[in-house]
Design a binder for these strands. Structure first.
Lengths: 266, 266
DNA sequence: GCCATTCCGTGACAATCATCACGGGTGCCC
DNA sequence: GGGCACCCGTGATGATTGTCACGGAATGGC
């Protein structure tokens, strides 16, 4: 457990404690990289908008007491599928990929988590093993709460327990949604269309177009829809040819939402 | 709202209130069939073993006060995907199929629920729409708790809220497990093998064999693993030919678990 | 016992898509 | 700047499996 100011390549940052994540090379996580550090949940930009942070000031303070903050570089691993749950990670910034994979190396990505989400919640609450692996895809800061502390906090704090239940409900909801895209489609094209539309649902529509950021490689998209890298490449090219969408780097513009919808309808 | 003793084809039964399920013909559920009626959760056989029922006597009584019990025949529908959540159904006996389906009629079954499980929990807690459809496949009795009552109860009852969170976690866990069978398999055979092994996990192994009850049609199995009825038929025949298993009516015997496992491993 | 419906078995066929293979592009690090 | 990863594009190929079609078995209601 480390506490104090630490030197970084770019800047200093304060690390209250350091929860052991795992670097890509298998070593423990020890070198948080420079990020915008959120020291205090009361001033966290997500406090108002996000489910779990939006609690009475009193409660947030109680949470802070058992929380340890850490930053993780791209490629770091917060936890691994099958590991006994140590506790929850509240994602303050950055993005984290949640996935599961089979013995032969095939990977299925379930979700790209955004700030405000609580990772490892189901396993921590039920006291089982993490069912997914959490990899940082965009440098992240997260608050860790150990399982025992967390459960104790919930016991003393009915409202927080309810929030946890709600967050779990939403997580489940999202899982079912992905399930639908994977399980109910007749073709890879349908899966991709479903995926794009779901993704676009978080972005505003203007003039019949939707601009969205999609910082995923074709490989990763394939892993989200249960397909192969090559088919994703081909399908995207196909969609572009048919004027359904347009790609500029990591931004994607849906030009014909109706057509995509008609693909999923069948 | 009905209260009192009601005549049934076979026997009398007591119905405290009647929560509106929907019969296969679309009419509301009004004619509960003869079942072993569980009048009192304190004497419910699942009380000790199941998560949600296993609460202090005091708490269970508080629950009873807001609970209404009803019985449903095979084919009845407890709730439908997309419907605003009215509340939760605690399954006391019977079995219920949870599924989602696409516009063109393709169906994906997520789970066959057993007594003790709480149905409609995620949607009720988050205040959204039911994400699945619940159909009775084996005559069922369930306790209904309306959303507002339920949320109020949880607020006054920290421990129950925690239990709810745990139940949600388990539900999520199960969803992820099915996700894996559907999303990580290379072939339908692999999916079927995965499915059978998961199903068998609830049954004891003796002398290298596992006897299990599988009251599902090939069609339903297909809908669980995201495949077609014909391939399930063919694959089961194939497995039988290869001496991996043996089918006698609705009981299935896994004779070579190792071989099945080697199929999923790849 | 008869009719109707559901369920299971099986053949033929076509389409989709995973896989392999390879090359070109881009960025990153030394 | 040279090499090394990684990512994207594309062709050829073959296995898998969804789909259609049909008949027989089984089940259940009257």
């Amino acid at each position: 457990m480390l506490t104090g100011w630490r030197r970084n390549p770019n800047r200093f940052q304060f690390v209250t404690k350091l929860e052991g994540g795992i670097l890509p090379d298998g070593t423990n996580m020890r070198t948080p990289y420079g990020l915008e550090i959120i020291e205090n949940c009361l001033s966290c930009p997500h406090r108002e908008e996000r489910l779990f942070c939006n609690l009475p000031e009193q409660t947030v303070k109680a949470l802070s007491a058992i929380t340890s903050s850490a930053s993780y570089p791209k490629g770091a691993t917060l936890f691994v599928e099958g590991q006994p749950a140590r506790g929850v990670f509240i994602l303050c910034s950055g993005r984290v990929k949640l996935s599961t994979s089979s013995a032969d190396g095939k990977t299925l990505i379930l979700r790209i988590s955004e700030p405000g989400e609580v990772l490892g919640l189901p396993a921590t609450v039920t006291g089982t093993c993490y069912e997914l692996t959490a990899d940082v895809v965009e440098p992240a800061q997260s608050n860790f709460i150990a399982r025992n502390d967390f459960l104790g906090f919930l016991k003393d704090n009915g409202e927080a327990a309810l929030r946890v239940a709600q967050q779990l409900g939403e997580t489940y909801h999202a899982a079912i949604a992905e399930m639908r895209t994977i399980g109910l489609s007749h073709s890879a094209g349908e899966k991709l269309a479903r995926f794009l539309l779901e993704w676009a649902a978080n972005y505003p529509e203007e003039k019949g177009q939707i601009r969205l950021k999609l910082t995923l490689t074709h490989e990763e998209i394939a892993q989200m829809i249960g397909s192969s890298r090559e088919t994703v490449t081909r399908l995207l090219a196909d969609f572009r040819r048919k004027q359904l969408l347009q790609v500029m780097g990591s931004t994607l513009i849906i030009k014909n939402k109706a057509a995509l919808e008609s693909i999923v309808t069948g």
